[in-house]
């Protein structure tokens, strides 16, 4: 539970809450780029910086959902551009497995996304964020959200 909204004022409505894992070498810088470039961006993101997208373990993703995230976005460098040679390829394998699992579980596919965003793609970063937020807004709150969390 996030202490900031544990006692929602009556009438306060749900806003999508999206956990975004950003790679230190690319998308995290991309997020900066997006800020510097003043692209319009939704405030629904909770960005977590990781040294490589492959640092994101399925446990992190599951935990985000179980704690109340409505979606999880993993972002990393384009294939072939990994700072650590092939970390992002490992990310891709893990992602594929998580995606299959969440689909089997009955969770909407859009709730877990993988995007390659380089450091210079501030605009892409903003559009990925905005699109995801819109999609999730349409889907509604995640069915895995615990009781008492908005």
């Amino acid at each position: 539970m996030d202490p900031s909204n544990k006692n929602p004022a009556p009438g306060l409505s749900w806003e999508p809450k999206i956990v975004m894992f950003c790679c230190n070498w690319c998308s995290y810088a991309g997020a900066d780029g997006a800020g510097i470039g003043r692209f319009q961006q939704s405030p629904s993101m909770r960005i977590i910086r990781v040294m490589c997208s492959s640092r994101v373990d399925p446990v992190h993703v599951f935990n985000a959902f179980l704690e109340g995230a409505d979606a999880v976005l993993i972002t990393g460098c384009h294939l072939g551009d990994c700072h650590y040679i092939n970390g992002n390829e490992k990310t891709l394998v893990k992602f594929k497995f998580m995606q299959m699992l969440l689909k089997e579980l009955g969770l909407e596919e859009e709730r877990l996304q993988l995007n390659w965003i380089s450091a210079s793609e501030g605009e892409k970063f903003a559009s990925v964020v905005n699109e995801a937020t819109e999609k999730i807004r349409k889907l509604g709150p995640s069915p895995l959200k615990p009781e008492g969390v908005i």
Binding site: G30, G33, C77, G80, S120
Partner: peptide
């Protein structure tokens, strides 16, 4: 197929990093 683009991207990445 992606091979040719790569070098350029790496450059961009490094610059981005420096900026941050």
């Amino acid at each position: 197929a992606k091979e040719p683009e790569r070098e350029g991207k790496r450059e961009g990445q490094r610059q981005g990093q420096g900026g941050c």
